[in-house]
Deep mutational scan, measured.
Amino acid sequence: MFYPNSPQTSPQLTQIPYGQQYAMMQRQIQQPYHPFATTEPQARLYPYHYQGPIQQEQGGFITQQSTAASPQYVQMRVTPVDQSIMSGYPNQTANGSSSSSFNYNIHPQQQQQQQQQQQQLRHHAMPVGSVPLQDDRYRKQLIVNYLAPDVTSTDLHELFSRFGELDGARIIYDKQTNMSKGYGFVYFCHAEDAKEAVERMSGYEFHGKWLKVGYSTNPLNIVPSNSSPYVHAGSRGAAG
Rank of each mutant, 00 (worst) to 15 (best):
P7G: 07
P7L: 07
T9L: 13
P11C: 09
P11V: 15
P17T: 08
P17Q: 13
G19P: 10
G19S: 08
Q21P: 11
Y22S: 04
A23H: 08
M24H: 05
P32L: 11
F36T: 09
A37I: 14
T38L: 12
T38I: 08
E40S: 07
E40L: 10
A43E: 06
A43T: 13
L45F: 14
L45Y: 06
P47C: 15
Y50K: 02
Q51R: 06
P53E: 07
Q56S: 13
E57F: 15
G59D: 04
F61H: 08
I62T: 08
I62M: 14
T63E: 13
Q64H: 11
P71E: 08
Q75C: 14
M76W: 14
D82M: 15
G88S: 08
Q92V: 12
A94P: 12
S99M: 07
S99P: 12
S100T: 06
I106N: 08
I106L: 11
Q110N: 06
Q111F: 14
Q111W: 15
Q112H: 10
Q114F: 13
Q115C: 05
Q116V: 11
Q117A: 12
Q118F: 13
Q118L: 12
H124W: 15
M126P: 09
G129P: 06
V131S: 09
V131W: 09
Q134W: 10
R137D: 01
K140R: 10
Q141K: 01
Q141R: 00
L142T: 02
L142V: 07
I143C: 00
Y146N: 00
Y146H: 01
L147G: 02
P149H: 09
D150K: 02
V151S: 02
T154W: 09
T154I: 09
D155F: 00
D155I: 03
L156G: 06
L156I: 13
F160E: 01
S161K: 03
S161C: 02
R162G: 08
G164E: 02
L166Y: 05
A169P: 03
A169V: 04
K175Q: 10
Q176Y: 09
M179C: 10
S180D: 01
G184A: 00
C189V: 04
C189R: 09
D193W: 01
A197F: 07
A197S: 04
V198Q: 08
E199I: 12
E199K: 11
G203D: 01
E205N: 12
L211N: 01
V213E: 00
T217I: 05
N218C: 00
N221Y: 14
I222W: 15
V223M: 05
P224D: 03
P224L: 03
P224Q: 07
N226C: 10
P229F: 12
H232V: 05
G234T: 03
R236D: 02
R236P: 05
G237E: 01
A238I: 08
A239S: 04
A239G: 13
